[in-house]
Design a binder for these strands. Structure first.
Lengths: 192, 192
DNA sequence: CGTGTCATGTAATCAGTTACATGATTCA
DNA sequence: TGAATCATGTAACTGATTACATGACACG
């Protein structure tokens, strides 16, 4: 096994929605998993090839006259079984690397203006995220009101909204607690 | 430039606290950045070497008689300047990959018991995180009550606590909304 | 006729972890 | 004596992105 196991299961999962090409899958990821997952073509195509080789999906050429040959992949029973097995496996904690926290941790050396700028940008990003979640939720409920997966999709939207909101609230608290303006300059020398 | 820029700045930042060896830095990271950052020896030692080569830190052997030769690194003025420049650069949004959300997104194929197990585990993990944040905060306030960096350190602790809390609340909401056993349907309105 | 979209794929590169190799000192 | 801790470093591998290569069709 050469390629990433996680990419494999993301693709198997998306194939439960129906047969799709690599290109389709990329767009599907951008449309539905965007907030907590992403894949590049450089991953998708090799993994798809491997899924077919392992019998987890079948590929058939979809020659829609003229266009460059599309390869449409369809989940097999073995693929479905592999997905189910992975879904049942416990989730390992994943170490995060949050650059904004690293910068703020050393924030004394940056000066108030820089820290405020970072926080304001981060706040705006998370606020936009919340609005986006609201939009996606409305769209999902309008487009797929009876889709069996809808409750699960909404769960991931709710997660995004809650964490974005918490981040915005943290930004507000942080901005309130930091010195307001550049009265004090960044530390050039220290050692307490 | 060969090694990761982010590792470089994490180490430069920690060196503002005083001279340290690669081993020291690893322990410092585990003690202070753990919740939002990590580095392995495989990164630390090569990057340290490069920092010295670039004049951002100086290394001197610390031959504490008998022990294997320690190399202690000290931040230079150029290193401090490089850190300041990086701190002022805007933070780019970083794509997250959250396995638990991926599993939940495809949760219909896993069955209620599996989903509940994932959520309960995730809840427990975040609850433990909150408690850990409280502990670290108390320790910092006790150990370094007047340290100039303390307000910044507390900011990162507060972030951790808020996001952990939001995650716990999400888990509670999700557990309440998911069907309890395999027979029931989701608690969504069910009009055909 | 040229730009955008559809479409697949590989190669180069980057970033990071894990395993391995080495070896001294401390302490039970 | 043997385990834990201190201590540095390299090699192999994994996972993922980006750049590159190719090319047809639709639309204005």
């Amino acid at each position: 096994m050469k390629t990433s196991p996680k990419t494999r299961y993301a693709l198997l999962g998306l194939l439960t929605l129906g047969p799709a090409s690599g290109y389709d899958l990329k767009r599907l990821i951008e449309a539905s998993l965007r907030n907590f997952w992403n894949e590049s073509y450089g991953q998708i195509y090799p993994v798809l090839k491997e899924l077919a080789a392992a019998g987890l999906a079948t590929s058939r050429p979809d020659a829609t006259q003229g266009r460059r040959a599309r390869k449409v992949y369809t989940l097999t029973a073995a693929g479905r079984a592999a997905l189910h097995a992975w879904l049942a496996e416990p989730v390992e904690p994943q170490p995060a690397r949050l650059e904004i926290l690293l910068k703020l941790f050393f924030g004394r050396h940056a000066g108030p203006a820089v820290n405020r700028r970072h926080l304001e940008q981060f706040r705006a990003r998370n606020l936009a995220g919340m609005a986006q979640m609201d939009g996606i939720q409305a769209e999902l409920q309008r487009e797929y009101p009876r889709h069996l997966d809808l409750p699960y999709w909404l769960l991931t939207i709710d997660y995004g909204r809650r964490l974005d909101r918490a981040a915005v609230e943290w930004c507000d608290a942080a901005l309130a607690s930091l010195p307001a303006s550049a009265r004090q300059r960044p530390a050039e020398t220290d050692r307490q």
